[in-house]
Write a protein that binds this DNA or RNA. Structure first.
Lengths: 105, 105
DNA sequence: CAAGTAGTTCAACGACTATTGAATTTTTGC
DNA sequence: GCAAAAATTCAATAGTCGTTGAACTACTTG
């Protein structure tokens, strides 16, 4: 059966966890890419690090409530939980994303 | 002569450093208090931790560009660099402070 | 000058972070 | 069923984080 992947509920999203997750440049790159493309599988971020290392960052983003992961066949599709984040901390992600410089144009 | 205390210029303020600094609950408590009182000496935060520990947090806030410290006689007065922060990352501190729960009413 | 006050520095600690490589699981297509 | 593809798990690493207590510096006032 499909492996259960843990996601915090909107209420469970913690400010410290969000800020901590967004303080890492690699994770911000991942998030910025997701803003552009909407949903992406894990292989779509290979320029940002090794597969193993990315798995680690995906987990941190997901556990912080920033991303949502769904399994489709052999791949996992990652997307942003912007609505949930906006409900929980209005304006926060918008401000962080506006402040974040994109590494590639 | 007065000990030189390092403060980053507005342009030097780094997003990772700001988010990292604000991800710690003790440091958020300090910042929230500063929002209320404007300027405070180091002894004004004793409820948030031991003297040694607070010195550590003051340094992190100052080096991230969040606070400014000036020496007056035997005490150091800490204040927020809200204008600088607003110039560098518009809306960011506002959103973080709005999201931050106060620990004491 | 001596004593008190304000705050820092230092070394130490356990815990966590980001990164890596090798081994493993899970699903799909032949 | 077998092999390739997608991604994770695990153990190990070096480095950083938050916290502590003891020792120190610097300024002020008697």
């Amino acid at each position: 059966m499909a492996k259960e992947i843990h996601h915090p509920t909107t209420e469970q999203i913690d400010l410290s966890a969000v800020l901590d997750a967004m303080s890492d440049p690699t994770r911000r790159d991942i998030v910025l890419r997701l803003v552009e493309v909407g949903e992406e599988n894990c292989s779509g971020f290979s320029e940002f690090g090794s597969k193993t290392n990315l798995t680690y960052h995906y987990a941190r983003l997901r556990e912080a409530g920033i991303t949502s992961t769904r399994i489709e066949g052999t791949q996992r599709l990652i997307s942003l939980r912007l609505n949930d984040l906006e409900m929980r901390f209005p304006g926060l992600m918008t401000a962080i994303l506006a402040a974040a410089p994109r590494s590639k144009t």
